[in-house]
């Protein structure tokens, strides 16, 4: 029976593919337009590279692509991460019956002190990455991930400290809100979401790039707190 079904499936697919190729031509109606449009097709990379700095004032063109030209995608991606964190919390919070097999063995003094010493430095590195995202490689996602790895270290080394999930929730909500509100201000000021409405500043200095660094900081905080809350949830210390 199973073999019969899979055989017939294969037959259907083969039939489909042959059908497709028998009359394989696409976009018949578009053909007349194509000739006209094909000439003025633009190379996006070149266009962004040559005009990105003047249009957005961010030295790192990738940052202006991520936050400005394709900023709407970034908003969506931040949301995807948010959903992952929330969804994980949903699934884990309903399965409380089996407590995580965590043996609360305190870390040795060396590890404990080392973690406490490294944690602020990691946070500093992470914030550096997302604050300078418009100047150097890196940005909100990368910086946020580094920040979250700091929280991971706290969990691994200083288990007694515990990770407060309320703090994550507040940071996550506020930075997400900041992103949306900044985007909406662009809509209100210039009629288009995510418009870079602030003065661009002089290129390659910290205060340049209009809203890009501000949004990057919001993304960094949001990603950091989302990944942090995922770690807190998985480590079983969240309420």
């Amino acid at each position: 029976m199973r073999r019969l079904i899979s055989l017939s499936l294969l037959l259907i697919v083969a039939l489909g593919i042959s059908l497709c190729f028998s009359g394989a031509y696409f976009g018949a109606e578009g053909a007349n337009r194509a000739g006209k449009l094909a000439q003025d097709r633009v190379n996006f990379g070149q266009r962004y590279n040559s005009r990105g700095l003047e249009e957005n004032g961010a030295g790192n063109i990738v940052a202006s692509v991520v936050v400005n030209y394709r900023g709407f995608d970034t908003l969506g991606e931040v949301t995807v991460l948010f959903i992952a964190a929330v969804g994980l919390a949903v699934v884990l919070s309903t399965r409380r019956e089996k407590p995580a097999r965590v043996r609360a063995e305190p870390a040795s003094l060396v590890v404990f002190t080392g973690c406490r010493f490294l944690f602020p430095l990691i946070l500093l590195l992470g914030s550096y990455i997302f604050i300078h995202g418009h100047l150097t490689p890196g940005g909100g996602f990368q910086g946020g991930a580094v920040v979250a790895s700091g929280f991971l270290l706290v969990y691994l080394g200083c288990r007694g400290k515990g990770l407060r999930s309320a703090g994550f929730t507040v940071t996550e909500s506020l930075s997400g809100l900041a992103f949306v509100v900044l985007a909406l201000v662009g809509l209100a000021v210039g009629g288009s979401l995510l418009l870079n409405f602030l003065p661009k500043g002089s290129a390659l200095t910290l205060f340049s790039g209009g809203v890009i660094p501000i949004i990057y900081v919001a993304i960094g905080l949001k990603v950091g707190s989302e990944l942090g809350s995922i770690i807190a949830n998985l480590s079983g210390e969240a309420p």
Partner: peptide
Amino acid sequence: PDVAMAEASIGAGLTTAIFIF
């Protein structure tokens, strides 16, 4: 380099930790 950073910190770092959890 941007993608490389993201891949290294998220792909090689955090994802591994999450899998181990």
